[in-house]
Amino acid sequence: MTTTATPIRVVIVDDHAIFRSGLKADLAPDILVLAEAATVEEAIAAVIAAAPDVVLLDVHLPGGRGQGGREVIAGCAGLLGTTKFLALSVSDSAEDVVSVIRAGARGYVTKSISGAEISDAVRRVAGGDAVFSPRLAGFVLDAFGTAEVAVEDELDKLSARELEVMRLIARGYSYKEVAKALFISIKTVETHVSAVLRKLQLSSRHELTRWAADRRLL
C-alpha cells in the first residue's frame, strides 16, 4: 500500500445520484473526486477526459449496449495501464463479480462497505494491488477448486500459498491479519492476491470455463 502525499484522483460512476453524493462524503480527504457519471457513455467520456487514478465503477449501468460496467472498462481499454477500475455493486452474484473482474477490474467491493474500508480499497487499487472481498475469494475458490491439482498451465491453478491466502480472505481476514496468520509480510500477501487476480482474468482453465458456463457467465 502506498500512502502518497498527492491525493488519489477518482471518478465515480453510478446511476444513483444519492449513492454518488453519499460515497463522495464518505471518502477520505486524500481522495479527490474529479468527475461523476451516470451512464455508460458519460462514464467513458468522463474517464477519458479526466484520466483518473481510480474509477469507482458500478456494475449495473444504464446506456450503452446494456453491459454496464464491463462496457465502460472495454471503452477505456487504452487507459488500463494507468487507470485502475474498482467495481462496486449491491449485487454479489457470481455473474456480476466474475464478469467485471475478467473485463479488467482490479477489485470488487459491495456497496454496503464502510467509508474507511472503501477509501482503503481505493488506495490499494491505486497502488496497483487487487482488492478481494470475502465473497470474491469464495468465488475464486469455487471456480479454481479447493484441492491442489496438477495442471500443465501455471495460469490454471492456484499455488498452495495462494489457496491459503484466498481461504483466509474468504474467512473475513484483512490483508494484515492474513500476513500475521501466515507469518509473511503484507507486501507478499498483496503479491499473492494480485497473482490470483491475474489468473482469474487470464485463465482459460477448463474448470473455470465450465464453472462460468454453469452460471451463464459465458
Binding site: 470475502p134 469464495g138 479447493t146 484441492a147 481461504r167 474467512r171 473475513g172 481476514y173
Partner: peptide, 19 residues
Amino acid sequence: TTVSVYVEAGPKGVDVFIK
C-alpha cells in the same frame, strides 16, 4: 460487529469458520 462465516465443503469433509 459483522460476523463472517465461511463454509468449505469438499470430499475430505466440511470446514466452517465463524469470525
